[in-house]
Amino acid sequence: MRIKILVRLKGQILEPQGKVIEQSLNSLGLTEFSNIRQGKLIELDLPDNISKEEKAQKIDSACKKLLVNDIIEEYEVLG
């Protein structure tokens, strides 16, 4: 099964790329967009035959050990 993990900077941390994207959109006349923040998406495959609990535990372990730095980032499993 294909897993998507969304990693983003925690809300209280300034995300300067989002600010620049917002300024550029504004300069293109797209002024309705605000509070833009850029994150990253990690996609990976896991075997289909593992249980739901095992899947959650494996993803959690990968995120905590390497994929996410919990001092500055948070993550969400999209599916």
Binding site: I13, L14, P16, Q17, V20, N69, I72
Partner: peptide, 10 residues
């Protein structure tokens, strides 16, 4: 402790 993130002015 802490972390090093992108420079404020990118």
């Amino acid at each position: 402790k802490g972390a090093l993130i992108r420079n404020k002015k990118l």
